[in-house]
Design a protein around this nucleic acid. Structure first.
Lengths: 111, 111
DNA sequence: CAGCATGTTACGATTGACGTAATATCACGG
DNA sequence: CCGTGATATTACGTCAATCGTAACATGCTG
């Protein structure tokens, strides 16, 4: 179980709320990263395919609006569990690094 | 400035203390991840080359012990600053995901 | 009508991690 | 003494994921 990369992690995070379709995820990720992360189309749909294959997200339903497809994804229970595991990993890593920086007298990264 | 991946992040973290040579970093990373992350040789030295190229680590000195080379690396100021930035990123991401999971009624990942 | 927002698909390129083998020395156990 | 494991680095090739962009299609707005 390799660590999730940031884009993938943020896709799961975006789906902790309402089920969203691809474009909605794009916007949600931008929003919750404060504009710091803007996914490209390739990254997003590639990530969704992989996540669906792994059972971490699932297609909720498909809508056709004006002939344009909207495919809604939801986070599965497995996806939520995986995300929780990742949160722990991030916190562990962040704390280890912050402790090292603090020892060094570095005044940033404290909390 | 793309996000650092876990192995690279942990290499920088290992170097927040004493300067270490490659093999020492390997052990330090294993130790501070609680055995969860064991870097392969290819991953480590590849990461060190890239980090040195970016000025985030620098060669402190080289020792020859029994004809075996030891190349010691240290974290640069730039590397420490970069690591601090990454810590913030990890915390931001972890908090966003934890908040989403909590809203969902997920009982893990709280702090 | 040009441009932008909405949505998804489909590429190719690049990056970084991964795995493993080669090289070399020393210590330890059977 | 000979294999194995620890110490250390180099050198591959492969794979997974991101990135970037273009294409396609519709509707609204200036």
């Amino acid at each position: 179980m390799p660590p999730l990369q940031e884009p993938t992690f943020l896709v799961l995070t975006a789906l902790t709320g309402e089920p969203l379709h691809g474009y909605g995820i794009l916007q949600q990720v931008t929003a919750l990263s404060g504009g710091a992360v803007v996914l490209g189309a390739g990254t997003l749909y590639g990530a969704l395919d992989r996540l669906a294959e792994q059972g971490l997200v699932a297609v909720e339903r498909e809508e056709a609006v004006d002939g344009r497809l909207r495919r809604y994804y939801r986070l599965t229970d497995e996806g939520a569990a995986r995300l929780a595991t990742e949160v722990e990993r991030l916190r562990r890593n962040a704390n280890a690094a912050a402790a090292g920086l603090r020892r060094r007298g570095f005044q940033a990264g404290l909390e």
